[in-house]
Design a protein around this nucleic acid. Sequence first.
RNA 1: GGGGGCGUGGUGAAGCCAGGAGUUCACGCCGGCCUGUCAAGCCGGAGGUCGCGGGUUCAAAUCCCGUCGUCCCCGCCA
Length: 591
Amino acid sequence: MYRDTYVGNLDAEAAGTTVTIAGWAARIRDQGGVAFVDLRDASGLVQVVIAPDEVPELVDVARSLKREYCLKIIGDVRARPPGTENLDLPTGAVEVAARTVEVLSTAQPLPFQLDDSIETDEQVRLQYRYLDLRRDRMSRNLKARSRAVAAIHNNLDAAGFMEVETPTLIKSTPEGARDVLVPSRHRQGHFYALPQSPQLFKQLLMVAGVDRYYQIARCYRDEDFRADRQIEFTQLDLEGSFWGQDEVLATIESVVSDAVAAVRGEGLSLPLSQMTYAEAIDRFGSDKPDLRFGMEIADLSDVFAASEFNAFASVVEGGGVVRAINIGESESSRSHLDGIIERAKELGAKGLVWMVVEQDGTIRSPVAKFLESGEMDAIRQALSGELGDVLLLVADEHRRASHVLGQLRLDHGRPDGHDDLSFLWVTDFPVFEVADDGGLAPAHHPFTAPRSVEELRDSPETAVAKAYDLVVNGVELGSGSVRIHDPAVQQEVFDILGIAPEEAHQRFGWFLEALRYGTPPHAGFAFGIDRLVSVLQNEPNIREVMPFPKTQTGFDPLTSSPSPVTEDQLAELGIELRPDAEESLEAHPAG
RNA sequence: GGGGGCGUGGUGAAGCCAGGAGUUCACGCCGGCCUGUCAAGCCGGAGGUCGCGGGUUCAAAUCCCGUCGUCCCCGCCA
C-alpha cells in the first residue's frame, strides 16, 4: 500500500494516528541532525520530521534526499511543539514523525524551480510542462477547470440535456476562420477539416429530435494566436428545440453561475444585465465592453460643429462625429501623449487630439487656440473633466471613432489584480458588419435567424439578428443565436448574404436537405471553457489553464510538434511538398 | 501581412544607450558545518561560444544587417 491518506487531510484531529503517505519532496531542510521534508501530494503539503535521536537508522536516507524525489513515508502524526506551528500552512498545526522513508523514485536536478520565486520563460515551462504542472499555481488551475466542467455537466444533466458527441473529422466549409485540414488516404487529394465548432451537427441533432443537446467540444481554428486564442480550444456547446433567446440566456446563466460557484465558491446574481450591440458600441466602443470601470465615451459633435477648429468641424459636416473619453489624471508629458497618438493611429484613427484640464478650468491642448471658453466649458462638462484630467478626442465616422476610443479606454482604464466579475449579455447584433472596403460582411454564420426577413431584405445594413454574446470583464466568452429552421428562409438569407444558390448547394446542400424534414425551431449557444476559467483564475492568458498548450507559432516545445513526416507517409496520402515547404523544413530543423 | 518587447552559467535579472579581459547580484546545483527548521542558516566550490550568421572596428554581449525563437498588440478570428 502506497498510502492510506492524503497529506492535506492531516490536521490537529489526526494527531496520534499513524499514517502512510506518498508524494514528492518539495523542500528539504537538513539541520545536520533533525531534518524536515515538506512532502507534497495532490492534496497539499505536510512537514515530515526525520529525527535521528528518535529513529537513528533514518540518518543516511535523510542525507540522500533531493528535491522532487518521490517518497513513501510511514510516520506518526503529532502536534508540533509549541511555537513551531506554521500558520501559513493548512497542515501547519501538525507534523509527521517519520518511522520509515522509502525512495520510490529519484529526480534529476530540475531545469527550473517549482516555487513561484522566479518567473520562468514560458517556452522552458512548456518543454517541461509535466514539471510546470506540479507547481501550485498550475495545479490549482487544473483543479479549477475540472470543477467548473463538473459543475457544467451536473447542471445540464439535471436540466435534462443529453450529451452527444459529434465527429472531429468533418467536411470543410471554408468560411470564417481557416480550417485545420487532415488528408484522406482512401481518397487522395480529398481532405477532412477539424470542426471550428459542432454548429451544423448540433442543428442536425435538433432535426433528429434530440431536443436538448450539449457537449464539451474541442474546436479548431487556424488563425493567428493571441493571449485568448489557441489553434485548439474547448467550448461548451449546447442547443435546444422549441426554444427562443430568453430560454437560452436563462440556461446559460444558470450553467455559468454554477461553474463560477464551483471555482469561486459563490455564484452569480441573476439575471445578468443586458445591453444591445448598438448601445455597447456607442457607450464603450466595443461589442464586448468591460464594465468593471466607467470612462464612457462622450459625444462632442455638437460642440465642434460650429467651432473654429476646422479639422473637426469639417468631419462633423461630412456626417462624422467627434467623440472623446476622459482617462483621468494621467501623465501629461509630451512624449507620453505622443505615444497615445501613435497608438490611436495603429488602431485606425487618422489622428487624436489630447486635452489637459488646467487649474483655472481652461484647457491645455494643441488645438486650444481654436476654442472659445464656452466650448472649453462644454467639453469639460461633457467629460466631467477635473483638474489634471487627460481627455482624448477622435473625429471620424461613428464606428471608427468609437472603436479607437474603446481600445484607448481599455489601455488606460482596465483594472488588474482584483477579483471582480462583470458579466454582460450583448444582444441584437447586426446581421452585417461594414467591411473596410465599405461593403457588407456577415457578422455571424449564415444560419443565424434575422429579426425579420423583410428588414433584412429592405435595409440589410441595419438589419438585426437574433444573436447574442456573453461577455465577462471585456472578454467575449461565447455567442449564440436563434437559428433559421425554414429552408426557404435559409435560402433567402444565403441569397442576401451573397452566397449563390449553386455555391450554397455545393457547400451546405446536405444541411439544407436536412432542414426540409420537419425542423423544429431551435436556438443555442457556445462559450469558451478556457476563457471562462482563465478569467475566474485571474490568469492573463488561456495557456495557463490548458495543460499542454502551444506557442504563438503553433509549436509544442514538449513533443516538438508539428514535425516532418516520412516520404512514405506523404506518398500514401498522395502529397508532395512544394519547394517553399522544403525550405521551411530546412529553416526549422527537427527538434 | 504589419508594429513592438525580449534572448547573457540550470533559472531569473543587471551590464548594451555611451565598444576595452565573461564582470556582477539573487535562486538553484556540488562539497563542508549545523538537532526545531519552514523560500532554514553559515562557509567554500563548480558552472556561460552573451540565440545563430554576417558586417563595422585595433577591439563587439554592447553598434549595424540578416535570421531563428518567444511574448504582447494591429490585421485576421462566419
